[in-house]
């Protein structure tokens, strides 16, 4: 029982983290049609901001959380301004290549100016403690991840449905030109999407830091790759799909961890992607995506 509960919390916590990062990707994609492959480096930038703050003597965990989030927003908005805005009207592949380029440049900057090797940063380790809830031992970090994902998801839904800027973002996902015909500045809507995305990156950075207790130039890479898979599972461009896809991926991974005998642990990733492929064969448009009519295939 305790083991099952522990694994359920595990799955929810992993799922929540994937869902947060997937939402960060989807917010930008739904409006710009851009898969921001530099997203992992925004997460890393947030973590490095904390590293630098600690280096100059600031060592309050709460301030570090605020700093990471602020840096996520700043880095994301700044990247949009200097890298993505100039290619906004270019074909989508140009944006994709730009994102890859930015990703590599940022990783190199971290390597060059800080270090190519991981740097210890235990400041936020305190977030990750074992709590006793009744007879059960649970990780405070996992509970926080779950709670944060629920709050962030709820806040996002509220923002998108109740504020004019949020409604404009939903409208822009379908027809950006017509949003401009309402007198709404295109740059504002895009900047808001990147700010939102950066905010989620900052939160993700806090969790990654608390778990691994160190920073590294490629620390965001695997997470963003997983989040990308979550977006594909959920249906690219759908925010609800991104959140759901993240959760599904969390459950697949933890489920396999539980079901596979320890000596087969090495094929966990392989099996994960087999399941993902099977899901996509069943629903090629993703769980929450809309089906596009492409005609019948000749037999």
């Amino acid at each position: 029982m305790e083991y099952a509960l522990q694994q359920l919390l595990n799955a929810l916590a992993f799922g929540a983290e994937y869902a947060l990062v997937a939402l960060g990707l989807a917010v930008v994609f739904s409006i710009m049609g851009l898969v921001n492959f530099a997203y992992g480096e925004i997460i890393a930038a947030s973590a490095y901001a904390v590293l630098l703050a600690v280096a100059v003597g600031l060592a309050a965990p709460l301030a570090a959380v605020g700093l990471a989030i602020a840096m996520g927003i700043l880095a994301s908005v700044l990247l949009e301004r200097v890298a993505f805005r100039p290619v906004r009207r270019a074909p989508l592949t140009t944006g994709l290549l730009t994102a890859f380029g930015v990703s590599i440049v940022l990783q190199n900057l971290f390597q060059l100016f800080i270090s190519p090797r991981p740097q210890a940063l235990p400041l936020l380790n305190g977030l990750n403690q074992t709590l006793m809830v009744g007879p059960y031992a649970v990780s405070s970090l996992q509970l926080m991840q779950l709670a944060t994902a629920i709050v962030a998801g709820g806040a996002l839904v509220w923002f998108l449905n109740r504020t004019t800027l949020g409604i404009a973002m939903r409208a822009a996902a379908g027809d950006f030109a017509t949003v401009r015909l309402q007198g709404i500045r295109a740059d504002r809507v895009v900047a808001a999407a990147f700010a939102l995305s950066g905010l989620l990156a900052g939160i993700a950075a806090v969790f990654v830091l608390a778990r691994r207790g160190s920073v590294a130039p490629d620390m965001g890479f695997m997470l963003v790759l997983k989040a990308f898979v979550a977006c594909v599972i959920g249906g690219f461009g759908s925010l609800a799909g991104a959140a759901l896809g993240g959760m599904v991926l969390g459950f697949i991974e933890v489920g396999l961890l539980v079901l596979l005998p320890a000596e087969y642990g090495g094929i966990k990733e392989t099996l994960t992607y087999c399941i993902v492929i099977a899901l996509l064969l069943l629903r090629p448009e993703g769980l929450m995506g809309t089906r596009r009519e492409l005609g019948d295939k000749e037999a």
Partner: peptide, 15 residues
Amino acid sequence: FAGLTVAENLRLAAA
């Protein structure tokens, strides 16, 4: 805006 309600369509225009 197909996914937005009539009220939301008008609200954007008044933004």
